[in-house]
Design a binder for these strands. Structure first.
Length: 583
DNA sequence: ACTAAGACTTGGAAAAAATGCA
DNA sequence: TGCATTTTTTCCAAGTCTTAGT
């Protein structure tokens, strides 16, 4: 298998002559941990420099116009651009912004501007709105110029050479300065994200490559040649002090292989999941508290597809949790609820401050254990006080090579898709099959709690669709009447012409029925999808070979399931999977 | 064993582009 | 053809997990 895939990638991405060499290399690579032999690129594209506002666009403090120094003005424009956003009404956002803004001010500005509430950014805000309006109104030719410039930049900076092949870079533009927008109740929202200069950038490339040149008059922070990592450039961001990277696009060999590997690990879990499950069920009875906690946590991770839940530094980020970091306040126990026994109610904020709310009946043993874990604890205490992700993953590693908590999410997502597709797929029309596929995808998204805010125009969009359906229904009954009439006509005359007319009308009815069905399917799909986000599971959790096989088996064109970008990302799977592929 | 740093995957929102419709 | 709607792409934040350092 290893050989096959290596050569598959080689075949796609390398000239034939290199096939042997590369295959051999790929097998070597896994042992010494190097990710490439040759890497050449042009370095990142920097954010355009700040353009001062025209003199007529004024900032007012306490009702009086005030000319700001360029650095203070730039930061003010960041705020002005967000004026319509809810963020700017939040206390923490305003406080953080004001504090960082003041750091950019001259000493005079600092002494004058002491209260954000006395600042009037509205002219700035209007100016930017007018600008973006003007951009929309640009002629085709003017837009073309912009597009061409973009394309030029992409061609020059958007690709690199990695091991003899030209690869697309994921994010070759450096993030522009602006105000940090965290998600949820983030304590750092509104802080100034500073401008990144060449002096902040570490370049990674191979020694024997043409090194990227920093912009004239500047220097890189460092140029290194580390082939144990996949990134091309990095810098340290000033809000959390974390490192940001420029890496390759998902269509690249290096990402594709890793992705494939991830699903292979999940398939290995499939082989031993029964053993692991009976093991943790046994562990519910352990004499040791830490083992019981580990076993209950693993049960949640497996059954509910919860994330691992690393510890987070308090006050640095929004207060969110995963399985191991659940607190007493996040669960409620109900010995009896409605018709069910031993119900656990989960209510907590997970990744990106997305709420997880679920009520599930659990085994009696799990319930009793939870009661035990809760004893003598305060709401803000850890539910699993003897457990963290490191302990859990160490245990998982012993159960299966390469097993970590997140593999359960991948495994359960993919196996759910496969099962759902088996249950739902019929020999319906293509649109009906696609509805089935989306429903299977939706089951996974629900399992993984991938939610979205309902689109702002959702209601209207549903109404529009309903109107179309009504119209189509009217068309259909009209067409049916005509068919009936044509039949009657044919019965009376029995001639060729009337027979043809019947056929024509029959066809028309059939066509309209199809169109109506398509619309109805679309409406169902959209309604069911109101608060569900399918993208993440499709892109990150579902073994693409399951989808490819399903398409082949049911004669659905792959384009109906994956758009161009997705087909590029999953090229390996599209080439690899046959209709009988089993996850 | 523990912590911090580092590397990489996963995540929804927003912007941009494509498509549909009058 | 111009506008509205839908789909795709971009953006960059926020997780997971590994590695390095002590």
């Amino acid at each position: 298998m290893r050989r096959f895939v290596s050569s598959m990638f080689s075949f796609r991405f390398f000239p034939r002559v290199l096939l042997f060499v590369v295959t051999r290399w790929e097998e070597e690579r896994s042992t010494d941990g190097s990710k490439w032999r040759f890497l050449e690129h042009k370095g990142p594209v920097f954010a355009p420099p700040y353009e001062p506002l025209p003199g007529k666009v004024k900032f007012y403090y306490d009702g009086k116009p005030m000319k700001l120094s360029a650095p203070a003005e730039e930061v003010a424009t960041f705020f002005a651009k967000m004026l319509d956003h809810e963020y700017t009404t939040k206390d923490i956002f305003r406080k953080n912004f004001f504090k960082d803004w003041r750091k950019e001010m001259t000493s005079e500005e600092k002494s004058t501007i002491t209260d954000l509430n006395k600042c009037n950014f509205s002219e700035m805000s209007e100016y930017f709105k007018a600008q973006s309006e003007a951009r929309k109104q640009m002629s085709k030719e003017e837009k073309q110029v912009d597009l061409q410039e973009n394309e030029r930049l992409l061609q020059e900076y958007g690709f690199c050479i990695m091991d003899n092949h030209k690869e697309r870079i994921g994010n070759f533009r450096i993030e522009p300065p602006g105000l940090f927008r965290g998600r949820g109740d983030h304590p750092k929202m509104g802080m100034l994200k500073r401008r990144i200069r060449p002096e902040d950038i570490i370049i990674n490339c191979s020694k024997d490559s043409k090194h990227p040149k920093p912009p004239p008059g500047t220097k890189w922070k460092e140029v290194r040649h580390d082939n144990k990592v996949t990134w091309l450039a990095s810098w340290t961001e000033n809000i959390q002090g974390s490192i940001k990277y420029i890496m390759l696009n998902p269509s690249s060999r290096i990402k594709g292989e890793k992705d494939w590997q991830k699903y292979e690990t999940a398939r290995r879990l499939k082989k031993c999941v029964d053993r692991i499950r009976s093991q943790y069920r046994d562990d519910w009875k352990s004499k040791e508290m830490r083992i019981r906690q580990r076993a209950v946590a693993l049960y949640f991770i497996d059954k509910l597809a919860l994330r691992a839940g690393n510890e987070k530094e308090e006050g640095e980020t929004a207060d969110t949790v995963g399985c191991c970091s659940l607190r007493v306040e996040h669960i409620k126990l109900y010995p009896k609820m409605d018709e069910q026994e031993y119900v656990v109610e989960f209510d907590f904020l997970g990744k990106d401050s997305i709420r997880y709310y679920n009520k599930i009946p659990v085994e009696k043993r799990v319930f009793k254990n939870l009661q035990l874990f809760l004893e003598n604890k305060q709401p803000e205490d850890d539910l699993f006080d003897r457990l963290n992700t490191s302990i859990l993953n160490k245990h998982l590693q012993e159960l299966m090579d390469g097993l970590t908590a997140k593999v359960f999410r991948t495994y359960n997502a993919s196996i759910t898709l496969q099962q759902q597709l088996k249950e739902l797929s019929s020999d319906d029309s293509v649109p009906a099959k696609i509805l089935s596929y989306n429903r299977a995808n939706r089951a996974v998204a629900i399992l993984c709690n991938h939610q979205r805010a309902p689109p702002k125009t959702f209601e209207k969009s549903m109404q529009n669709l309903q109107t179309k359906i009504d119209e189509k229904q009217n068309q259909l009954s009209a067409a049916r009447k005509q068919l009936k009439a044509a039949k009657a006509d044919h019965k009376a005359s029995h001639d060729e012409k009337s027979k043809k007319a019947v056929e024509v009308k029959r066809k028309a009815v059939q066509r309209i029925e199809e169109q109506l069905m398509k619309l109805q399917v679309q409406a169902t799909d959209r309604e069911e999808n109101k608060q569900i986000a399918l993208g993440t599971s499709k892109l990150n959790y579902l073994d693409p070979r399951i989808s490819v096989a399903w398409c082949k088996k049911y004669g659905v064109p792959i384009e109906k399931i994956y758009n161009k970008t997705q087909r590029e990302k999953f090229a390996w799977a599209i080439d690899m999977a046959e209709k009988d592929y089993e996850f």
